[in-house]
Design a protein around this nucleic acid. Structure first.
Lengths: 139, 139
DNA sequence: CCGTATCCGATTTGATACTG
DNA sequence: CAGTATCAAATCGGATACGG
């Protein structure tokens, strides 16, 4: 186990853009983890559960656009990754509560920062895309 | 312009997990932007270019695992979003330099935070996954 | 209420080969 | 060196129907 990423050398700066051991990072499981969180619904669910625990159909209504299939799949993946806890209450009818684990709550910070960036720079991006599309039509 | 996400209400907390206006967020273009950055290679390239500008084949070697097709596609998307600048030097043979725009550099911060999180908690995640898999085999 | 199972289309990605 | 073109495979994601 020494060829993966050597020793987690505090890989990234928190405030300023600094040179990064790129080769180490590229070969790392970082991409793996990022892809896991970077799918269509994971971040949204993490943020949602960051507010408070939710029941299954609560989530289904809150996201509204997600299918049962993807809601279940995404929750199961988050659970198996230790980010979300699934708690079944043996009532009748049964109720299931989903909540963030401590690990999940720690993820909430960087994810929130990214979502925050997306909101702040949404217009700049769509502007750039519009300019790019226009430049492609009238070169 | 009033039905999209009302007024960008400082949507997410930076330090502490706080309740989030979930319905607003879910209907927002946030998911759009996140999906754009959350694909398999974008974050990696942004981080790589955050270190210093790179030429095409430099990136190809640095990531090592990406196909020419995906490298080009991802770079083009990042460029059209205004995150990356593509500069062609009319030398022979031709050389093309990719670098981060100011907008791209602003993205570097939250992305780095997320990648940093991924590195720090990589073991916890794989541990959780292992436990989950084990629990599935011997219930 | 809380899911699982199945089918099917859309999108993403990689391999390979070829060009200015 | 820096790409483009084409094809096939894998994955994603939604609709629908059914089960505990």
């Amino acid at each position: 186990m020494s060829g993966t990423h050597t020793d987690v050398p505090s890989v990234l700066a928190h405030e300023l853009p600094r040179p990064v051991p790129a080769d180490e990072l590229a070969a790392c499981p970082v991409g793996d983890v990022l892809r896991r969180v970077g799918d269509k619904w994971s971040m949204l669910l993490v943020i949602l559960l960051g507010g408070r625990p939710h029941r299954y159909n609560e989530l289904h209504r809150a996201v509204e656009g997600i299918s049962q299939r993807m809601l279940t799949r995404t929750l199961r993946t988050l659970e198996s990754d230790g980010l979300v806890r699934r708690q079944v209450h043996p009532t009748v009818p049964p109720s299931v509560e989903y909540s963030l684990t401590p690990l999940g709550r720690s993820l909430l910070e960087p994810v929130s920062a990214l979502a925050d960036w997306a909101v702040r720079h949404e217009e700049e991006i769509s502007g750039a895309r519009a300019r790019h599309a226009a430049a492609r039509d009238t070169p």
